[in-house]
């Protein structure tokens, strides 16, 4: 049963996964090419020093990638089910409902996490080719919260799509937006260094948000 659930989710999510990875990698390709040209043109130390002094972010185009990943995953996963109540059928299967929803959320969240993880890994790979270790570390610490923003966005978008009351949908949308903007607040390089754990915990906790909407969705009232 669980495997069937996961398979069904995978069928839906694979396109999101593929599209997002393709988008991300093509962006990284551009970034890498730009860096390659910059480093081919002159000595490396002035470029390093420029990065240290002015805190230039050559990867700033990735800023909204996490949000995009969360949003696309949520849309792909929940949108086909909600208008014609396909999910309701699933919630009435002889299987504990909340665990069923849990599996759905887990699949979606894993998609977001894997896509974003891949992006971070690829970015760090590129960075370590051109820059020394402290830069790699700071770049990782800078990108990580941006990617974390995908989880609250995914969770709140899911909750908003599942919920039946319009007011609540709007409120969930606002909460998701504001939560994401906490993670995206421009704090410079490695700005989240000390509090990354706290923010990470918050993002993971947010994943519980869609359950109650699913419950409401199933009942169709309140």
């Amino acid at each position: 049963m669980i495997r069937a659930f996961i398979f069904k989710e995978w069928l839906k999510l694979r396109w999101a996964f593929l599209g997002l990875s393709l988008l991300g990698f093509s962006f990284l390709l551009f970034t890498g090419h730009g860096l390659y040209r910059e480093f081919a043109a002159g000595p490396a130390v002035p470029i390093w020093q420029n990065l240290v002094e002015r805190q230039v972010m050559f990867f700033s185009g990735l800023k909204y990638f996490g949000v995009l990943a969360g949003l696309v995953t949520a849309l792909v996963q929940w949108l086909p089910d909600t208008p014609n109540r396909g999910l309701r059928l699933q919630l009435h299967l002889p299987f504990p409902q909340m665990q069923g929803v849990g599996i759905l959320v887990l699949c979606g969240a894993l998609t977001v996490i894997v896509v974003c993880g891949l992006m971070i890994a690829a970015l760090l790979l590129i960075t370590q080719y051109f820059f020394p270790w402290p830069v790699v570390r700071s770049v990782g610490l800078t990108v990580f919260p941006w990617m974390l923003a995908g989880l609250p966005v995914y969770a709140m978008a899911g909750a908003a799509l599942l919920d039946i009351s319009l007011l609540r949908r709007v409120i969930y949308g606002i909460i998701g937006w504001q939560m994401a903007s906490l993670y995206l607040a421009g704090c410079g390089y490695a700005g989240f260094e000390g509090v990354l754990g706290l923010y990470g915990l918050m993002a993971l906790l947010m994943l519980f948000a869609p359950f109650i909407s699913a419950e409401r969705f199933k009942r169709g009232t309140l």
Partner: peptide, 20 residues
């Protein structure tokens, strides 16, 4: 587990609204 999920979900939503 079911009621735990629902409870925690409700609290997460409520607390995140408070946080925001």
């Amino acid at each position: 587990i079911e009621s735990f999920f629902k409870k925690i979900s409700g609290w997460v939503l409520c607390l995140s609204a408070v946080l925001v």
